[in-house]
Structure formats: C-alpha cells, structure tokens
Amino acid sequence: MVAPSNVFWDHVGHLHTNVLHWEGFPNLLWDSLSLFFCTEPPQYDGVEYRKEGVSRCRVKMMILQHPFRSQWHPIEVDVVGYRLVDTIETAALEAIHIFCNQHPMEVAGHPIGLFPAIDSSNPEWNFRIAHYGHMLGDSAEETIRGVIRFMNVQHHYQILLRREMGQLTGVAQGHYRKADRQVTRIVELQALVTEKDEIIAARNETILHRED
C-alpha cells in the first residue's frame, strides 16, 4: 500500500511527518503494517530543544488501532534523542520491536519477523539474497537462528549506543552546571568588587571634603 509522504512544522515548532520520503525504519515499518491491512501510516511528532546547554530531541509516534482487528491495540512510542533524524529512526525501530512482541504468530511468516532489515543498497547483500536457495536446505534452521541472533544483537547494540550517549550527555551537563555556577560566582564577585570600589570612592571624597 502506497501512502503519500507528508512533512510540516506546526506553530510551536513541532515536526509532523509519516517519514515515507526516505528509506529507513519508518518505511520498513509501514511496508510491513500494510501487509496486515493497516490503512494509516504511523505519524511522528518531533521537537528539538536544549536542556542544560545540550541539544536534545523528543519524538512521539503511534501505530493506530487496527481497522478491524479489535484485539490489536494502538502502539505508542516516546523516545528522547539528540537529532530528529536519528530519533525518528529509533522510534520506528522501537515500534517494530513492540509490534513483533505483541504479534509473534502473525509476523512469523513475514520479513518483519526477522527485523531489522539489512541495507537493501548493499551489493554484497543483494548477491547473497539472489543466491540464498542453498541456505534453505538442511541448514535452514541454523540460518534462521543466525539471522535472528544478528538482528537481536543489532537491536541491543543500538540500545547500548543510546545509553552511552545518555551517559556522555550526563557528563556534559555536569560540566555545564559546574561552569554555570562558576560564572555566577564570578558575576557575584564582580558585583561585590564594584560595590566596595564605590564605598572606597565615597570615603575618599568625604576625606577630601574634610581636608578642604
């Protein structure tokens, strides 16, 4: 099912899009949802902001209620990152993970069940896929297990990267708070010096008047 792409910013600076204008996890997610007769692609709401001197980004997305499978409840994802593009990809990947966990039997016979996908522009991958018949013989189970393990490792690797970035951000925010306190202290000391200079100047003026 082909859905038109849409990208727009609202009056408060939020980006709204279904992210169908580039090849990525959002597109893979929608292609897979279409196989299950979903009619509306997920919408992504992203906003960039600064927190304690560090650029941050928050993306919310939702897979809507299935049009006729009442037991397929909406899936909501809320992700915090550092750039809109990366955070949107992370949100889509998280949505794929949740969708597969909620519907393991349904996705078992589809590519989404073996997420995440490999870059389709990789010539080596295309060559192997074009000649993958030998992998579906006696070693089919081993091949599938290996692919699943690779995909799970990739997913966990991205989680680790996010955690590492969070730790680095925490360190950066700590330095920012320390520097901010030092700047505040310097300003206070400068104000104190100025005040004392004014007092000294006033006393000197008083002394001069008395000498006259």
Rank of each mutant, 00 (worst) to 15 (best):
A108W: 06
D86V: 05
A108H: 11
V79T: 08
G109K: 01
V85Q: 10
M105H: 09
L93K: 10
A108V: 06
D86C: 03
H97M: 10
V80P: 00
I75Y: 02
I98R: 04
I98N: 03
E94M: 13
I88W: 05
V85L: 11
H103F: 14
I75C: 02
Q102R: 13
C100P: 00
I98E: 07
E89G: 08
V79Y: 06
D86E: 13
T90L: 14
V107Y: 06
H103I: 05
A108S: 14
E94T: 13
Y82C: 05
E106M: 04
L93G: 14
I112K: 01
A92Q: 06
E89Q: 15
A108R: 11
P111S: 03
I98V: 13
V85D: 11
E89W: 07
I96E: 13
V77Q: 04
M105Q: 14
P104A: 08
M105W: 06
V107Q: 03
E106N: 02
I96K: 07
I88S: 03
L114C: 06
E106A: 12
A95D: 04
P104M: 10
V79L: 08
P104L: 13
I75A: 01
I112M: 07
V85F: 09
M105R: 10
V85M: 07
H97V: 12
H110N: 11
T90P: 01
C100H: 04
L93C: 12
L84I: 15
E94G: 03
I96C: 14
V79E: 09
G81E: 09
A92C: 10
R83H: 07
V79R: 06
H97N: 12
E89T: 05
Y82S: 12
L114F: 15
I96N: 04
G113D: 02
C100T: 07
R83G: 05
N101K: 13
Q102P: 01
V107W: 09
L84F: 08
M105Y: 10
N101M: 13
T90G: 07
V107I: 15
P104G: 12
A92W: 09
N101P: 00
L84W: 04
E94S: 13
I112W: 02
I98P: 01
E94R: 14
T87E: 06
V80F: 02
E94Q: 14
I98Y: 01
A108P: 02
H110Q: 13
G113I: 03
C100M: 11
H97Q: 12
Q102I: 02
F99N: 05
Y82K: 05
H110F: 15
I98F: 04
T87R: 09
P111G: 00
H97D: 14
V80Q: 04
I96A: 12
C100R: 05
R83L: 08
P104F: 11
I96M: 15
M105V: 10
A91V: 07
Y82W: 12
I112E: 01
L114Q: 06
H103N: 14
